[in-house]
Design a protein around this nucleic acid. Structure first.
Lengths: 141, 141
DNA sequence: AGATACTTGACTAATTTAGTCAGGTTTATA
DNA sequence: TATAAACCTGACTAAATTAGTCAAGTATCT
């Protein structure tokens, strides 16, 4: 069970953005350099973040990206959702007649996986970008 | 972020084993049929489980596998550990001089991933095979 | 005008997963 | 003691996913 780079990068980039976001937009180039993420890959990620209204883009020289909401209001769930990072614990197919379909015929462990999924998602729903930035300021890193 | 089949199957198979484990060993063939997991794959999995003393094998006709501990004492952590299902949230390499090494130079989000990893592992450490079987008996599935 | 920066979509190499396959060995029982 | 059931092992592979790269734009500030 592992987190993919896309989700991890999205959070890293946004944490970076939240930290350096004052009045001026932050360019992907800067984030790329600071976080060591390929610029091309960042562009893919930010395109998705923009479509979900998590960030706003500013074009032209001195352009870049700005958070579209307060850091407090951006939860990890929102970020992962935007870049299609999903928590998947079951394979059981709905509407399958035989085997586990999650309804009438549940596999022995179905409830377990559901619980696990909820457990993880709860974590994502509670954590906000603000928590991340705060955490770092406190530690003075 | 998803759970791999190997880990899922290991838990499914052991839950099945715990349920049908009375005096007689349970054959992989039976588990294979009941759980819809390929016999060959099950053999790989049980070989690992045996090496970690989670199950014991009984050879010969009417042979099979038996739990080596009480269901209560077998936690999900033990199972996942046996089949190399690991929770990986970071990529940060120890001893890397530049970038995040988890010590002196921590990436902005390092603590977050550590927390996430702990959060998930806690779940695995708390759940035992017994919980699974109980859960199913109660629901009469 | 020109530089900077965003935007989009197609493509691909590497890795991982989820098995299969083949060829054993061991042991209870008839 | 023959035989079948069951375990045991290691090598191999096809498919899927990931983690990007690459190319060719478009928009806008100065």
């Amino acid at each position: 069970m592992k987190l993919t780079s896309k989700g991890r990068y999205a959070v890293m980039a946004l944490a970076d953005l939240a930290r350096f976001d004052n009045i001026n937009p932050v360019s992907l180039r800067d984030i790329s350099l600071r976080q060591g993420i390929s610029l091309d890959y960042l562009e893919q990620i930010f395109s998705k973040l923009r479509k979900k209204d998590i960030v706003q883009s500013v074009r032209g020289t001195q352009g870049g990206y700005v958070l579209n909401k307060k850091a407090k209001e951006i939860k990890l769930t929102n970020i992962f959702d935007a870049v299609d990072e999903k928590v998947k614990t079951v394979q059981c197919k709905k509407d399958s007649k035989k085997g586990c379909n999650g309804k009438s015929t549940k596999c022995l462990t179905h409830n377990l996986w559901d619980e696990l999924e909820n457990h993880i998602n709860n974590f994502f729903e509670e954590k906000s970008l603000e928590d991340l930035v705060k955490d770092n300021v406190e530690r003075r890193i």
